Amino acid sequence: MNTRFRFLAALLLAAAACTAGAATKTIQLPPDGAQLTPSPLPGYAKAQVNCVACHSAEYMLYQPPTAPRGYWEAMVKRMKAVFKAPVPDEDMPAIVDYLVKTYGNEKGR
């Protein structure tokens, strides 16, 4: 056996031994302080599934109310690219539309 293979095998065995004895941990999150603002826009349901699965709806309230569509587009793209949010590409425009019309500078349009 070559040295690299033995090292890799030992590393895998050590990792397996560590995870075998590890206990499952649970986390109790505090209740959300805010809910997404209901809307008939299709992005509302998509935001409920994709956005608040990872963070509170309160996050939207911290964004500038004058934020334009480009800001919200960048924010949704950032969530997907940087934080690996599992948002389907085809849902992104509807989510952006909901966010900008509910929390951004197109509110009420």
Rank of each mutant, 00 (worst) to 15 (best):
53 A>C: 05
98 Y>H: 07
96 V>G: 07
75 M>R: 00
86 P>G: 12
77 K>V: 00
6 R>M: 13
92 M>D: 03
58 E>P: 12
65 P>V: 11
105 N>Y: 02
43 G>H: 03
32 D>V: 04
36 L>R: 01
73 E>I: 11
6 R>I: 12
36 L>T: 01
89 D>I: 06
61 L>R: 08
89 D>H: 06
11 L>H: 08
83 F>T: 03
105 N>K: 02
27 I>S: 03
66 T>S: 15
48 Q>H: 00
66 T>D: 15
54 C>K: 08
16 A>H: 10
48 Q>E: 01
72 W>K: 02
89 D>N: 12
25 K>G: 04
62 Y>K: 01
50 N>H: 13
41 L>M: 09
107 K>S: 05
38 P>L: 04
45 A>Y: 03
62 Y>L: 10
86 P>E: 14
44 Y>G: 03
61 L>F: 13
79 M>D: 09
40 P>D: 15
99 L>R: 01
27 I>P: 03
65 P>A: 10
28 Q>P: 00
2 N>G: 14
90 E>T: 12
36 L>E: 01
84 K>D: 14
12 L>N: 14
60 M>T: 05
44 Y>K: 01
56 S>C: 12
53 A>H: 09
54 C>N: 12
13 L>A: 12
51 C>M: 01
54 C>M: 10
52 V>K: 10
90 E>Q: 10
29 L>P: 04
54 C>Q: 06
1 M>S: 14
33 G>N: 05
22 A>E: 03
29 L>H: 02
34 A>D: 14
67 A>T: 08
26 T>R: 07
107 K>R: 11
8 L>K: 06
6 R>C: 13
18 C>T: 01
91 D>P: 03
67 A>D: 09
43 G>N: 06
77 K>H: 10
12 L>C: 13
1 M>E: 15
34 A>L: 09
93 P>F: 07
70 G>D: 15
59 Y>R: 05
37 T>F: 04
92 M>T: 13
49 V>M: 04
35 Q>S: 05
76 V>L: 06
101 K>E: 07
55 H>C: 04
17 A>L: 14
50 N>W: 05
20 A>G: 10
76 V>A: 11
